[in-house]
Design a protein around this nucleic acid. Structure first.
Lengths: 147, 147
DNA sequence: TAAAAATGTTTGGTTAATCCTAAATTTTTC
DNA sequence: GAAAAATTTAGGATTAACCAAACATTTTTA
């Protein structure tokens, strides 16, 4: 059986989307919204939300909606950090445009280690914004500068 | 249901290992060998081999062993190409040592698009060897040079 | 060469992640 | 407050991975 706390790919996608709606856009996260975004049946969303609540990543109120917990926010930021650092790499190093960079980042962000991401981050001098100008979150362990 | 031909992560790992034993070391691939390598029960290996045979990627003879088919060889080379190109990137760009580069590449190789890999390949002038000196296979569609 | 040992397969499970439909429940809206 | 809309529950299905134990085959060895 898997950790009672580790995230699956889909779960992490839910968190990231919830982060963008709740924190970056200040809107309530509803089941229907998520269902539409992920093109799944609302019943599926409910299931995932319950799982995320069990794992302590969201506070979930039946028939109302969900809100990221402290830990949920941190997890979402971790994924978004990975995603955005990869975007920086793809734009700067491979000269991809922002859209393509985003697409390719989406395929691997979840699987990249934090260590790898931090190395890239250092290489680019700890960038603060991704190519589409969104904030890149700090990782407190990612501070030194490449000599 | 998934494609009758597409590969899962584990299946692709089996192919890559079979490639290394069969093609690069000229040895027979046995169920036990695979079971030990992947630390799984032999019964699990048999299952995967049957699946790979169904998908036309290996020729599988009960009680004897398996041998990669033409298509299996191509698939294995695709994955190994991705893996090795990533190693080049991590060693040259991030100054990782070969071992660390291999570890990090293993986490994402399967998920990287061929297009991404080809862009990296071009950027490094179509390298022919990975940091541990193994051959990097050519992708016929990866020919042009970055201007 | 026959029995023992090693190897490999089959059978019959388990678990986890995703997803669905239909029915039931709750909330919202008119 | 009743109908409409949103959400959840109940009950399933599928697929990927895995395992143990029983069985089959091949190989070794005495």
């Amino acid at each position: 059986m898997s950790d009672r706390t580790s995230l699956t790919l889909k779960e992490s996608r839910y968190l990231a989307l919830m982060y963008r709606t709740q924190v970056e856009e200040g809107e309530r996260v509803t089941t229907t919204t998520l269902a539409k975004s992920f093109k799944v049946n609302p019943a599926t969303v409910t299931e995932v939300l319950q799982k995320l609540a069990e794992k302590g990543l969201i506070e979930y109120v039946r028939y109302y909606g969900a809100r990221l917990s402290e830990r949920g926010i941190l997890e979402a930021q971790k994924l978004l950090r990975k995603h955005r650092i990869l975007e920086v790499l793809f734009v700067k190093f491979l000269r991809y445009d922002a859209k393509k960079a985003c697409e390719e980042a989406s395929k691997i962000d979840f699987y990249c280690s934090e260590e790898l991401i931090n190395t890239i981050c250092k290489t680019y001098g700890h960038p603060e914004k991704c190519p589409c100008n969104k904030k890149i979150f700090r990782d407190p362990t990612c501070l030194s500068v490449v000599s």
